[in-house]
């Protein structure tokens, strides 16, 4: 394992190394010490490698991730794993706003809570939150799954397209055009597989399912008040 100490190295140096633009290409395991809440740690990774960030990360950690497996041993700031394409990002603590924003693929696991706008404009990734999510989560989510083991804040799934939302606790309120759905046996089976893959000990049968009512796809003047 190669160790980067951000007490001495800088973030650009780290990212160049993790993007395989410098150093030995055979090395696949990295440890980042003293992250001190710095922004843009481990962004734009395009190779199969493991990165452990030992401490709290700042904004956009593991953004645009492709293939890599990134673990944050602490909290993550705004936009963790934003625009992720594939791979896995795991936050052992809490995540700030807009976690997994516009993520196309891969798996984001937040073991603690995520604040507002978790999974905003989600485009195909899976997000599993061990705790609760804040308001406006899954806003305009187009594809993928947001799974919340705790509670969801106000206006969950506002203007949602075809993403699937699962919440085990309470939902403060649903956003425009989001409604509760009856999950099929296949949904429950797939959800259980996702929970297992995320390493979350939960029974898929105890989650409620939410999705688009598909009333706002096409503009109708009668719906003007809902936009």
């Amino acid at each position: 394992m190669e160790t980067f100490d951000l007490g001495t190295a800088d973030v650009r140096e780290l990212n160049r190394r993790l993007q395989r633009r410098s150093g030995n290409a055979a090395e696949t395991a990295f440890e980042v010490l003293n992250p001190m809440g710095r922004h843009s740690l481990a962004v734009g990774l395009m190779h199969t490698l493991d990165v452990w960030i030992r401490g709290h990360a700042g904004y956009y950690c593991a953004g645009m991730n492709e293939r890599a497996n990134v673990v944050v041993d602490g909290n993550a700031g705004v936009g963790v794993a934003e625009n992720m394409m594939s791979g896995t990002v795991r936050v052992r603590g809490d995540a700030s706003q807009s976690a997994g924003a516009t993520a196309h693929g891969g798996l984001l696991v937040i073991e603690g809570d995520a604040s507002a706008r978790c999974g905003i404009s989600l485009k195909g990734a899976d997000i599993v939150v061990g705790g609760s999510v804040g308001h406006m989560s899954a806003f305009m989510a187009q594809a993928g799954r947001l799974v919340v083991c705790g509670d969801a804040g106000a206006n969950l799934g506002d203007s949602i397209y075809e993403a699937e939302l699962f919440v085990r606790g309470t939902v403060e309120s649903l956003g425009a055009d989001c409604e509760e759905k009856e999950p099929s046996a296949e949904h429950v089976r797939d959800l259980q597989a996702l929970l297992d893959r995320a390493g979350v000990d939960a029974d898929a049968g105890t989650f409620r399912c939410y999705g688009s009512a598909r009333r706002l796809y096409h503009f109708k003047v009668d719906n003007a008040g809902s936009y």
């Binding site: 809440g37 700042g58 603590g93 809490d94 507002a116």
Partner: peptide, 22 residues
């Protein structure tokens, strides 16, 4: 505004860290 401003406070590694609710 951001955690990095708190990252050097004495004893921060054992602090409770959270986002204030709206």
């Amino acid at each position: 505004s951001e955690y990095r401003a708190l990252a050097r406070l004495p004893g921060v590694e054992s602090a409770a860290v959270w986002e204030p609710k709206p």
